[in-house]
Design a protein around this nucleic acid. Structure first.
Length: 571
RNA sequence: GUACCGGUAGCUCAGUGGAUAGAGUGUCUCACUCCGAAUGAGAAGGCCGCGGGUUCGAUCCCCGCUCGGUACACCA
């Protein structure tokens, strides 16, 4: 693909400016308003070194490069040199690139030979999968896809919350109030009811807490009965989670959760002790982090059992040994910022420089209109219900608009679930939000269905073309001078920027950057579609326009895929 | 109390050390004998939380304040 910034930087370069081509390239801007050109070069900074008014410098540069064949026009406006690339040239280069690379357009291999671990979703066993869990699940999945697209080897880890004192509580509760049949019939619901009952009962019988702690200690030491029960809870729960993952089209390479590290912790504790980091405080074993302005990291409780922090340290060391990661990414809620700071500091104190390659990717809180979600208090919205409602709503709309659509049920799933995922990936992940049924079931405007509709619309136009047209546009033999309208050209520019947007989104661990750009593309396509008739009588013009439709369809589908969303041909 | 995160149009949110701060939604108009109206066009809507500072230039960077969220040793 032609690097237009590179070309322009070479054109602008002149000894007298005192800037290298690279420096000029990095100073080039894409103007907010298209009437100001495609790429602009601001001359403010040159004013000082050249001791000349920036407007004059801009005027001189514009004059000097104005005759270049790459430009339709070069203007000086105030302190800017505004360049307008030759439209037919730009269109031809971009469209041939997209249509020949097809599903690979946007990908690259900058990560070749390196491994990136993405830990995401990581729900707690025996608790329902609610709307709060969608964030880590869907953001993490997109980050994995982004890194995969730019050439990294990826490892997807679902760090299941399948260990800890809560399982002591669960086992105690199950023994007191549960039974096998009930559990089999409706695992998570039953487990949740036992857990809830435990918390009610413990108010009056505080000794239950001690019992739970003892039970977890037995589990951790490998007592057969406790282990068998725990395995049953885990297996049943996982089966339910997998149903939701199936709906979302999400899978993992590893389900090594907290329990997986239970036998790897004593070594970590020994190592900490050997390195002189472990001290006793109030009966517990801790790492003192006061010199670093942090509260202490508790490694072992006073009863000798392990904690979340201990397991995360063991996990990081294990992952470094097993995968030799380039980056180890944790997509975990921002509530755990402090935990990750402490954890990184402990690894640092242990002498592991690779802690710098461990990245916590935090995201904001989802709450309900009634307040913070609380499973125990029944203030909870189940993810599966949200997905099912979105699918039902989609089906209703489809039956009204396009009842003849083949495979209507299948497409309703792709669109309904896509709508939920898309909304989740629309905003900066750090922002908190309040869940709203109205919002999640709205399919107009900047939504997943809007983008999918745009894709279906482009597909429809291509279906209406004849075979010779399709052959011509896939071979790239078109007269691109027909694509010189403003609406065609702004669409082309948006498609051109997709590869850099993908890299940017990956580097910042921010899928919403891609989501936003995709909305811009859909808007731009729809404007082009309205402004211009595509299937015109003039064959050359028709084929040039169809080639842009094909390129748009390809790019939309590729971007949707990176968000974990399907791109149906009809809807 | 301390730390971190957020405050941009009625609402939900983008945005960048630079040109006139943008979308969607809601409200009011307009456009389907025409390639898919889940669409497009137009109108209206802004002390970019407040006060200082750095800079040729700050919504953006720094400091203080304020409002909201989150976290702060044996839960995860």
């Amino acid at each position: 693909m032609i690097d237009f910034k590179e070309i322009i930087a070479h054109e602008i370069f002149d000894e007298a400016l005192g800037l290298s081509v690279e420096e000029i390239k990095s100073m080039l801007e894409i103007p907010a308003d298209e009437s100001m050109g495609d790429f602009a070069f601001p001359c403010f900074k040159l004013a000082r070194t050249m001791r000349k008014a920036p407007q004059m410098i801009a005027a001189e540069i514009a004059e000097r490069i104005g005759e270049s064949e790459y430009f339709d026009k070069v203007e000086q406006v105030n302190a800017y040199v505004n360049t307008f690339i030759n439209r037919a040239y730009f269109a031809g280069e971009l469209i041939k690139e997209v249509n020949s690379k097809a599903e690979n357009y946007g990908k690259c291999n900058v990560g070749e030979g390196r491994t990136v671990i993405v830990e995401y979703s990581s729900p707690n066993i025996a608790k329902p999968f609610h709307i709060g869990h969608i964030r880590s699940t869907v953001i993490g999945n997109s980050i994995y896809k982004l890194y995969d697209a730019i050439g990294y080897k990826t490892v997807r880890i679902n760090h299941l919350g399948d260990y800890g004192t809560q399982f002591g509580k669960m086992i105690v509760a199950y023994r007191k109030w549960g039974n096998e049949d009930e559990l089999k019939a409706n695992p998570i619901k039953s487990l949740l009811s036992y857990y809830t009952k435990f918390h009610v009962e413990v108010e009056e019988h505080p000794e239950l807490d001690d019992e739970a702690r003892e039970t977890f200690a037995r589990l951790e030491s490998g007592a057969a009965e406790e282990v068998a029960l725990w395995e049953k809870f885990r297996e049943y729960s996982l089966a339910e989670f997998n149903r939701v993952y199936g709906m979302l089209g999400i899978s993992f390479d590893s389900y090594a959760g907290e329990s997986f590290y239970s036998d790897k912790m004593p070594a970590v504790v020994d190592e900490l002790r050997a390195k002189g980091l472990l001290v006793e405080s109030q009966g517990a074993q801790i790492v003192d982090l006061e010199p670093y302005g942090l509260t202490p990291a508790v490694i072992l409780k006073s009863d000798g059992s392990s904690l979340y922090a201990t397991r995360d340290i063991a996990a990081a060391i294990y992952r470094k040994k097993t995968y030799d990661f380039y980056k180890n990414i944790y997509v975990v809620a921002s509530q755990q910022n402090l935990h990750f700071k402490q954890w990184k500091k402990v690894l640092d104190l242990m002498g592991y420089e690779w802690q710098e390659d461990c990245v916590h990717v935090p995201f904001g809180l989802v709450s309900l209109e009634e307040g913070t979600m609380s499973t125990r208090h029944g203030r909870v919205v189940f993810l599966e219900d949200v997905l099912n409602n979105a699918v039902d709503k989609t089906k209703e709309i489809m039956l009204e608009k396009n009842p003849e659509t083949p495979e209507l049920d299948e497409i309703a799933k792709e669109v309904g679930i896509g709508a939920v995922i898309f909304q989740e990936l629309s905003n900066n992940r750090i922002k908190d939000y309040v869940f709203s049924w109205d919002k999640v079931l709205n399919f107009d405007g900047e939504t997943g269905p809007y983008v999918q509709y745009t894709h279906a619309r482009a597909s429809s136009v291509l279906r209406n073309a004849d075979e010779e047209d399709i052959r011509a546009i896939t071979s790239g033999a078109c007269d691109f001078t027909y694509l010189n309208s403003d609406s065609a050209y702004s669409l082309i520019k948006l498609l051109y920027r997709v590869p850099e947007v993908i890299c940017d989104a990956a580097e910042k661990y921010e899928p919403s950057i891609l989501t936003r750009h995709l909305v811009d593309i859909a808007q731009s396509f729809n404007k082009f579609y309205h402004d211009e008739h595509i299937l015109v009588d003039n064959i050359e013009e028709k084929r040039a326009k169809l080639s842009l439709v094909l390129a748009s369809k390809i790019v939309i589908a590729n971007c949707l895929d990176l968000l974990g969303i399907k791109a149906p041909e009809r809807m």
